[in-house]
Design a protein around this nucleic acid. Structure first.
Lengths: 165, 165
DNA sequence: TCCGGATCGTAGGACGTCCTCAGAAAGTAG
DNA sequence: CTACTTTCTGAGGACGTCCTACGATCCGGA
């Protein structure tokens, strides 16, 4: 993967201004920056998770179950908390079941619903994977310490404005 | 899409601290925030682009060609600038060709390479789509004006540290 | 000149995301 | 109790991303 001579986001911003789109240049730069940052961070996380047979999407499902303490949640609950499409969680759960990390159970009172249950292997894997992620990714995301707070804060505003919570 | 009672990122941070992972909690919050912000912004962009038969990935290819002024670039150049895998750009170009927005041409001197050429329809579509994106997404990304600059700045640091440029 | 390594693009496959549609079950109004 | 609406899940498909493997081409050094 080669290093570019110039920041592609700043290059795009320059083109935006040249085309008379200056009033949208900052927004374009923000959106493009977030897109690329996500790509970088997701690649790092997936690389660390690969030895555990996980991806970040499946890891998020496992962590939700780990935090539930009883290790079991309705599928619908995970869909709501993870803010993704039902079929996305569905396929993640399918692969977690395939690998023995979770199990599907029928809901005791709602015949439509499904309960996802963390297995012992799933609990062990989630814990070990978290320690690896903490060490290899989260402990240093490549942003100066004092700028992490403001970053999370501004993105929280964005998420709130988008109706997440 | 339902609104959650609490910020899921802050909920996760709380769980991180409770599990003794406090030193990685900020990084986890930063990574998770970026992931969700990207999902929100990508969904908005794709929605605005849908009437033009575009996705954000294909739109980025078109804009690179539009800015090249001759409207033609080696495929390799677009792969490098967009920082994605060659096969990702390949499939994007396939669909752009299918829709008549670009054409493939052989490279005049390098038998391995491919030149991607913007068609008149592609140029027109890219321009109109940009005006829609500027109006509907980039002009107001849901972040206070004065915080956009720092956001772009901190993510530029992250991208630079990751070796992008 | 020739040959071995590097580069470019593509094919096939795994995965995650979204969409629409369908069916089953639950809830609700009458 | 019936009929209508809503909720939950799964099937099938489109798309973007990545990976590995492969063939074709280029290039530089022997």
């Amino acid at each position: 993967m080669s290093r570019l001579p110039l920041d592609p986001v700043e290059e795009a911003r320059r083109h935006w201004v040249e085309h008379g789109w200056g009033d949208a240049a900052d927004g374009m730069a923000a959106v493009t920056s977030v897109m690329r940052a996500q790509q970088i961070l997701l690649a790092r996380a997936d690389e660390v998770l690969r030895p555990y047979g996980l991806t970040f999407a499946r890891y998020e499902v496992l962590m939700l179950l780990l935090f539930s303490r009883s290790g079991r949640l309705p599928l619908r609950t995970t869909v709501t908390r993870l803010q993704v499409h039902p079929t996305s969680v569905g396929s993640a759960v399918d692969r977690l079941v395939r690998d023995g990390l979770v199990e599907r159970e029928p809901h005791p009172t709602d015949g439509r619903a499904v309960i996802v249950v963390l297995t012992d292997l799933g609990r062990k894997t989630a814990t070990e994977a978290t320690e690896a992620l903490n060490r290899e990714v989260f402990a240093d995301v490549g942003v100066p310490e004092r700028r992490v707070g403001p970053l999370v804060s501004v993105l929280r505003d964005l998420r709130r404005a988008a109706g997440d919570f």
